[in-house]
Design a protein around this nucleic acid. Structure first.
Lengths: 339, 339
DNA sequence: TTTTTGACTTCAACCGATTGCATAGAAATG
DNA sequence: CATTTCTATGCAATCGGTTGAAGTCAAAAA
C-alpha cells in the first residue's frame, strides 16, 4: 500500500512552497503560468490526488448534495436519480442518496443523517405521510438550501419542481370524456401529497366542467400496490353500474388493475377505458398499451440538481424562483382509444 | 447562519481538554463514565455535530463506498441499490452512486472519480462491453477492496456475488422442455458478460441433455430493448418452423416480445411458451403472467454492502471468500404452463 | 540613483478531530 | 511513610490544503 502524494511532496521536489503548489493546482491568477505548468506536470507524474477532506475542512464546504426520496426501486425515481447523478457528477458534486420508504419517521432520520454529514444542499421528494417540514428546520436555520421535487409542499425560500398535476389530471379525465366515457373512476394515493391531491382536483374539475357529478363511490384511495389494483378491479366487477372509464394515478397500479378487469371479463377499452400516470416502461408492455401522462423524470432530476448547484455557486438565488413547472404530455395508446 | 460547535467549545465550557471531549464522544474506555455523561449532555445541549472532514482527515478514511452500476433506471438495479443503501446507512457509511450507461469508457471515468474521492471500497456491476479490469488497477494497488456483483469477472482478491446463472439458465430451459417444448429459442445479451454467457451455457446444456440440437438460428444476441423484443417476435413469425418455447434472459424484453408475438397471432403459452429472467414487477403485470427466475436483488445489494463493510472493519477478509452464490427461484406462471 | 510598482512567492495561521505519550492524583501495596 | 499501580486527563503533534498578509525581486518611473 503506497502512501499518498501531498502538495508538500510536490513543493519539496520543486523547491517551492506548498502555498504556491496549492494555488497553482487551483489555477489561481497570481501564479506564473510556467510555474503552473511545472507543478501540474509534476503532480500528474506523481499521481497526486487532492485530499477532499483537508480541502473541505478548510473551505467549510462539502461538495455533497443530499437526496431523500420515498423509494429507490421505482422506475420513475431511478430515472430522476439518473438525471441528478449526471448533473452532479459534471459539477463535481457527490450525491448521498437515501430513501424514506414512504415513512415520515424514516425521513426525519434521513434528514438528521444528511445534516450530520453536512450536505451543501438538499433535494427532497416527500414521503406519503409527511405533513410538515419541521424536520428540515435545522437546514433552514443554517441557510442550507433545499429543493423539493415531485412530492412537494409550499415553503418559503424553497423551490418546488413539479409538473402541473392539476392540469394533467384534468387532461387525463377530459381525454376519457372525449372518448365517450360518462362514469369515470379515479384511483389515487395519499391525498396529503400534492401530486395526488392535484390530480384528483383536476379529475373533479373535468367532471364538473362536463356537467357530471363527482361521486365519492368512484374515488378510491390506495397505496398503488399490485394488490390494490386487483382489489379495485374486483370492486368494479361487483358494482351494479360499473364505470366506463378509469383514471389511475400510477401506471403500475393501472396495469395490475387492467389485468384484474380482464380476468373479470371486462374488455379494455371497449367496456372500460383506462388512463395511467408516469409513462413507466410498463405502459408499453401491457396489453393493450396504456394511455398515460408522460412524466419527464430524467429532466426533473437534472433541473433539480442544476438549480441547486447554481444556487450554491451563487448564480441563481433559489428564493426568487419559487416554482418550476415542467411539461408533461398525455400519450394516448390503445387502453383508452375508442373512436 | 450560526457557527458550528466544536469539541473545543465543549471543552472550554466544561474546563476539560479537547482530547477528553473527543475520547468521551467516541466512548473511549479510559474516560470516566460521569465525565462521559457530562460531556455528551453538553454536546447535545449545544447541538454539536462532529466534523466528518476533520475526523476523516485525521483517521485517513472516508466512510464512503463507491457504487458503479450499468444503469440506475432498471427495476432490478434500484432494488439492489435499495439494499445497499439500507446496510450502508446502518453502518454509517455513505454511498456514492454512478452509472456507466453500459459503456466501458464511462465506467473508467467513474472509476477515476471514485478513486479521487477516495472511497474506502468499491461495489461494481460491469458495463456490457467491459472486457478487463485494468481501470481498477489503481484500487488494487492501493489495497482498496472491491466487490463485483451480478455482472462479474473473475479476479484475484475480489469477491464476486452472483447467482448460479448457468444452473438458472439450465432450469429455465429444462422447465420449457418439461412443458413439452422441443424447439426453444434463447434471446440473450452481450456474451461478454458472465450473466448472459452462463445462462446461454445452461440453455445449451439442457438441450444437449435432452438430446436436442443447439441451433444457431435459435440464439439471438440483443440489447434487450423493447424494440429488440418486437423484432424477435417478428422474426419468429417469419420462420418456417417457429420455436414452441422462448427463453429470454430479461423480463422486460420477454414482455415486449410476448406482445409482439400476440400481435403476430401466436397464443401464449399454447403456441409458444415463454420464460423470462429477473422477476421484475412487470412479470406479474403482463398477460399472461410471465414465468421467470426470481433474482434476489435487495438481498444481493445487502450482502454486497455488508461483505464490503465487514472487510473494511477487518471482520472478514474478502480474499478468502471468493464467490458468494445467492439462491434464485424459478417461478412458474401462466406464460409457460401447458400441462 | 532612488523610489515605486507589480508580479510572484512564501510565511504561518488556520480548519477540527484524533492519538501516542506524559502526568497528576488517588488508591493500593510494601 | 515510601513506592508502585491505576485511573483519568492533558499536551502537543498530526492529517493536508487554504488564504490573508508579508516578503522578494526585477522592471519601470521619478
Amino acid at each position: 500500500m503506497e502512501k499518498e502524494t501531498t502538495i508538500y511532496d510536490i513543493a519539496r521536489l520543486l523547491n517551492l512552497s506548498p502555498a504556491t503548489v496549492s494555488r497553482a493546482l487551483n489555477d489561481h491568477p497570481a501564479i506564473n503560468s510556467n510555474t503552473k505548468q511545472l507543478i501540474s506536470n509534476k503532480a500528474l507524474e506523481m499521481g497526486y490526488r487532492s485530499n477532499t477532506f483537508a480541502s473541505n475542512l478548510r473551505r467549510q464546504q462539502t461538495k455533497t448534495i443530499g437526496v431523500i426520496v420515498p423509494r429507490l426501486d421505482s422506475s420513475f425515481m431511478s430515472t430522476v436519480l439518473s438525471g441528478m447523478e449526471k448533473v452532479a457528477n459534471e459539477a463535481n458534486y457527490n450525491l448521498i442518496i437515501s430513501q424514506s420508504l414512504e415513512s415520515s419517521r424514516k425521513e426525519m432520520a434521513n434528514a438528521k443523517t444528511m445534516f450530520n454529514s453536512r450536505v451543501d444542499g438538499l433535494l427532497v421528494s416527500l414521503a406519503a405521510d409527511t405533513d410538515n417540514l419541521e424536520h428540515f428546520s435545522t437546514f433552514f436555520r443554517k441557510g442550507i438550501p433545499m429543493i423539493l421535487f415531485d412530492r412537494v409542499m409550499p415553503q418559503k425560500n424553497c423551490t418546488n419542481i413539479v409538473i402541473d398535476n392539476l392540469k394533467a389530471g384534468y387532461e387525463a379525465t377530459a381525454h376519457l370524456l372525449g372518448q365517450g366515457c360518462r362514469r369515470i373512476m379515479h384511483v389515487t394515493g395519499s391525498v396529503k401529497r400534492n401530486v395526488y391531491a392535484d390530480r384528483l382536483k383536476g379529475y373533479k374539475m373535468a367532471l364538473l366542467e362536463h356537467g357530471l357529478p363527482v361521486e365519492d363511490e368512484l374515488i378510491r384511495l390506495t397505496d398503488f400496490t399490485r394488490q390494490d389494483g386487483l382489489d379495485v378491479a374486483d370492486e368494479i366487477a361487483r358494482m351494479p353500474s360499473p364505470p366506463d372509464g378509469l383514471f389511475v394515478a400510477s401506471d403500475l397500479c393501472a396495469a395490475s388493475c387492467m389485468g384484474g378487469l380482464r380476468k373479470n371479463g371486462f374488455s379494455i377499452p371497449k367496456d372500460i377505458a383506462v388512463v395511467g400516470f408516469n409513462d413507466d416502461p410498463i405502459a408499453q408492455l401491457v396489453e393493450p398499451n396504456l394511455t398515460t401522462i408522460h412524466y419527464p423524470g430524467q429532466e426533473m432530476g437534472e433541473i433539480a440538481a442544476q438549480s441547486l448547484i447554481n444556487h450554491l455557486n451563487g448564480l441563481l438565488r433559489i428564493s426568487t424562483t419559487n416554482t418550476i413547472l415542467l411539461n408533461y404530455e398525455l400519450i394516448v395508446r390503445e387502453s383508452s382509444r375508442r373512436v
